[in-house]
Computed example of a mutant assay.
Amino acid sequence: MTVNSTPLTKDPIAEAALNWERHGWGEVAAPMAAVTSIMRAQQILLARTQTVLKPFGLTFARYELLALLNFSREKRLLMSKASALLQVHPTSVTNAVDRLEAAGLVERRPHESDRRALVLVLTDEGTRVAAEATEALNAEVFGQTGFEDGDVAQLNEILTRFRAQAGDFEAGDGVESPAGRDR
């Protein structure tokens, strides 16, 4: 499935790269095509995930929050910690929590010792939805990316290195990268 209903007859990104070269920007034509391809791939993959998550009443951002809570030891996290781990502004987490709370999937609770802090707690229904949505994503998106196994390993390695160099995380933080793992 693509975001377009009908595939284009030519690759518009390759055409753009040719235009870059024709206009004297040949030295950045390939990097422009790479950046644009990554952005387009993100649109395609996001559309796929949204299609799978729609029956659960979730967006990918809300799913990420549910999954994060579901993977936490006690199915609870400080709201500020969730924001940091998801690498989004606290306002974005608040918006997602508002929707998840209205759906009965999470609860906000005051922190036991810090009145200013809020704890997000996954409900039983949230645990169920997180598990079912994860199964659906694994079957319909993550297990069927359209990438070859070797491509997945190479993509993970390249993108992990890029993210570390961009300051997304500190390299050598002790977290094993999925870069070299087989699916």
Rank of each mutant, 00 (worst) to 15 (best):
A34L: 14
G126M: 11
W25I: 09
R73Q: 15
Q165Y: 11
D182F: 03
D173F: 10
R109K: 15
L137F: 01
N19P: 03
L77G: 02
T36G: 07
K10N: 01
V119R: 05
L58S: 01
S177G: 09
V28A: 03
R115C: 00
E74C: 09
T9F: 02
D149C: 05
A82P: 09
A117M: 08
R161A: 15
L105D: 05
E148G: 13
S113Q: 10
A67R: 15
L45Q: 08
R163D: 13
V141P: 02
R161G: 12
L86S: 12
P110A: 00
R115G: 03
T49S: 12
R116L: 03
A33V: 12
R183V: 12
V175R: 13
E132K: 12
R128H: 13
A16P: 00
T160C: 08
H23C: 09
E15C: 06
T49A: 13
M32G: 11
E101H: 08
G24D: 12
K75F: 06
N138D: 11
S177H: 10
A166H: 05
G150R: 09
V3G: 01
W20A: 14
L58W: 01
Q50S: 08
A171F: 10
V97R: 08
Q144K: 15
E107M: 13
L45W: 01
Q144P: 03
E27C: 04
R99K: 10
L85Q: 14
L105E: 02
Q165L: 14
G26N: 04
F142N: 07
Q144F: 05
H23N: 14
K75R: 15
T59G: 10
L65V: 11
E74R: 15
I38D: 12
T145E: 11
Q87R: 14
A139D: 08
R109P: 01
P178S: 06
